[in-house]
Amino acid sequence: MMMLDKLEMYIQYPFVRYALIVGVFIALCSSLLGVTLVLKRFSFIGDGLSHVAFGAMAIAAVLNVANQMAVMMPITIVSAVLLLRTGQNAKIKGDAAIAMISVGSLAFGYMLMNIFSGSSNLSGDVCSTLFGSTSILTLSKQDVWLCTVLSIAVVLTFTFFYNKIFAVTFDEDFAKASGTKADGCNLLIAIVIAVIIVLAMNLVGSLLISALIIFPALSAMRLFRSFKSVTVFSAALSVGCALAGILTSILAGTPVGSTIVAVDAAAFGICWIAGTIKGGIHS
């Protein structure tokens, strides 16, 4: 009862409500492309991009711009498109290029922050960019709106291109041969991933984004056997975990990002066991 009372009290605060809204939207978006990312070997792009986003955030911090997203979004999108290009080019080893870019932007970002940051709490700043900050609890109304609008755009885009994304993810050669614009679709996937990563950066920080994207998809794939059911379940699971994680972090005072990822990991564990039992019965 104590817990519920405490919760009820917290819900009164707008910043808690904002955090919950933003958390739910980001969790929903990030889970949608999880399956595609895992199966299309795009996961490396997700990882590389989160580091690029870190570098971009450092630039934004140094430039002292009010709206960091305005700097991060274009840089991350352009990188996504470039990474996709190199990934497809057989001559340049895609993996090496991505490793270079991602480690490079981490180093560059940290250096920038070190040289130019006027902040007295530098390591605290860096830490919160990497692992997510409590900034999700200090969102302004404007942040919430921006995040909501972008999330809805991501969900609509995904729904609109759902069948094409399936076709291209399942068998790109066939899709191309039979007249689906596979290249355009890949470009779209890369852009959407970039948008999701910039959004998710607020919630869990750049090092934990991949977890937010990939855990729900892997969990759902343990239990379900069709693309649609996997997609729907991983979206639901991701939202559930984000809610549970945010509430826990508020009640227990733990860091938001890592709490959400911990809940995601626990859910994966449960799904893994459930899948093993279910698979055992079936076969």
Partner: peptide
């Protein structure tokens, strides 16, 4: 690992 039902795959031929 790809999770896809037979119906989903055949239908993707109509894409």
């Amino acid at each position: 690992e790809f999770p896809a039902s037979v119906r989903e795959i055949v239908l993707s031929g109509c894409q």
